[in-house]
Nucleic acid binder design. Structure first.
Length: 280
DNA sequence: CGTACACCCTGGCCGC
DNA sequence: TGCGGCCAGGGTGTAC
């Protein structure tokens, strides 16, 4: 589920709940996520104060006061919910898929649930973070000011794979997933089947700009969902967002003056949605 | 090296 | 109501 904008929204919500507060307790119900949690996971995290929370690609990084960095990835179905102290105290049973629960100093609970268990948690340190295997091969952050058409074109140079597959590769750009790749290609008028190495020059400029706009708009939508998330569940990162082509097979192309229809095709095992008329 | 594909896991939905 | 098949917003290991 979560791509860069959703992870960013989760980051903001978690930071509001945890920053400057100690992790008073950790309950691990299932340690067998995509990777097994370290055996001493709870011991290494308990009692530490959360100094801040960063995001790298689709990873959340919690900076703890002793230099430990708690890495969280939500996978496909991972969710974080913030449960206020009174609600946490009133509730008895926990959800079937709530694998890890952090009790924050003020009684708030931060709960990680993940039915498919493609998510993960890991521990590293500030000093060792840069060389960490999870981050070593990640491409540039698409919202970094240095990410422009030229930077993107350089990453795509020589690639014989379709642009759709190239953009899903986290070594090319870090943080895009199936939805926002489809949306960015639509906005820039580029066919998902076009070979990556042919996206150069002005075309790469358009694509880089579209990626930026699509992500920023989604983060903005997530931000507003955060502001009115008096939602009882306290669940972060899921907000109503309107997609132009994603999951809209058969709909009329939303581009003014285009009489095309949104089509679905499968590329490297994943659905692609696009308008064959205005994406070339 | 780059690319293609199976696989990890569970749940929801659709058609029969 | 039950059941099989297919789908799902991610990432990695392995085979060419």
């Amino acid at each position: 589920m979560p791509e860069l904008p959703e992870v960013e929204t989760v980051r903001r919500g978690m930071e509001a709940a945890m920053r400057g507060r100690p992790i008073a307790g950790v309950t691990v119900r299932r340690a067998d996520l995509r990777r097994a949690l370290p055996v001493d996971f709870a011991a290494r995290v308990t009692g530490r104060v959360v100094r801040g929370i960063r995001r790298r690609a689709k990873y959340l990084l919690l900076d703890l006061d002793d230099g430990t960095v708690l890495i969280i990835h939500l996978g496909m179905s991972g969710r974080i919910s913030i449960v206020p102290a009174d609600a946490a105290a009133a509730e008895g049973a926990h959800g079937k898929h709530e694998h890890v629960v952090f009790a924050v100093g003020n009684g708030t609970e931060v709960r990680f649930s993940d039915p498919r268990r493609f998510g993960l948690m890991a521990l590293t340190t500030r000093d060792e973070e840069d060389g960490h295997p999870l981050f070593a091969r990640l491409g540039p952050e698409p919202l970094d000011p240095a990410f422009d058409g030229a930077a993107l074109a350089a990453r795509l140079a020589g690639k014989r794979t379709p642009i759709k597959a190239a953009l899903l590769d986290q070594r090319v750009v870090a943080g895009l997933g199936n939805i926002y790749v489809c949306e960015s290609l639509f906005m820039s008028g580029i066919s998902p089947r076009r070979l990556a190495r042919t996206v150069q020059g002005e075309r790469a400029d358009r694509l880089a700009k579209a990626i930026h706009q699509v992500l920023e708009a989604a983060i903005e939508a997530g931000g507003s969902s955060l502001r009115d998330h008096a939602a009882p569940s306290g669940e972060l990162g899921y907000f109503q967002h309107h997609f132009k082509v994603y999951d809209r097979e058969g709909a009329a192309c939303p581009h003014l003056g285009c009489s095309g229809t949104v089509k679905r095709l499968v590329q490297s095992g994943r659905s692609t949605f696009f308008c064959p008329t205005c994406q070339r």
